[in-house]
Design a binder for these strands. Sequence first.
DNA 1: CGCACCTGCTTCG
DNA 2: CGAAGCAGGTGCG
Length: 195
Amino acid sequence: MHHTPSASTNFALPLQLHRMTADEFRQLEIAYTITESPFGPMLIATSGKGICYLSFGENGTEGLHQRYPFARIQPKENSWHRDVKKIVEQSVFFGENSGPDAPALPLHVFGTDFQFNVWQQLLLIPYGKQTCYKAIAANVGRPKAVRATGTAIGNNPVALLIPCHRVVTSAGKTGGYRWGIALKTRLIEAEKNVV
DNA sequence: CGCACCTGCTTCG
DNA sequence: CGAAGCAGGTGCG
C-alpha cells in the first residue's frame, strides 16, 4: 500500500537540510518574499544559511513571525527565493527540477531531535510517491508514536520542498494538511500528472 | 525547574 | 466510534 522511502530516485532535488542551532534561532536575520505560485500565494523566507520557511495561502507575515519570534524579518528578495519560485513553477509541468541546472538549495530549520528526524525522513520520499504516518514513525524508531509523528510533520516549516504532502493515512485517505487539505490533494495530483 | 494536563496532518479494534 | 499512544507546548506552584 505504501512505499518505503528510498534515497535513490530519478527525481531528486539537490536539497541539503541544515539544522538551526538555538543560538542561530535567537539571532536570526530573515529575508522574505511573497509571490504568486501555481498553488496560490507563496511566502518564501531565508536565513543566512538557507530556506527557513515556505508557506502557501498567507498574504502576511503572521505565520513567519510566530515561527521565528526573535528574528529580524524584512521583505527582500534574493536568489534562493527566485530558485524556489522557479522550482515550484517548473515542477507543475516537468516534475521536480532535477536537470543539470537544478539549483542546490540549502534548507535551514529549527526543531527538536524528534522533529528533525521526521523531517529528514520526508526528504527521502520520492517525487510522485506517498507513504503513511506509521511508516515514518517506524523509520525514526518510534513505531508507536504515529500521532506525534503527524504533529511533527504538521510543524514542518518548509512546505513542498520538505514534502509533507506525500504522507497520507494507512487507510489511503489524504490525512490532514496545515495549508488545507484541498492544497494537499492538488499537490499529490500535480505530481501524478508528470512524466 | 518540574509536573500535570491538553492537543494533534494517526491507528487499530 | 473510542481508546491507545506519545512528543511538544502551556501553565501553575
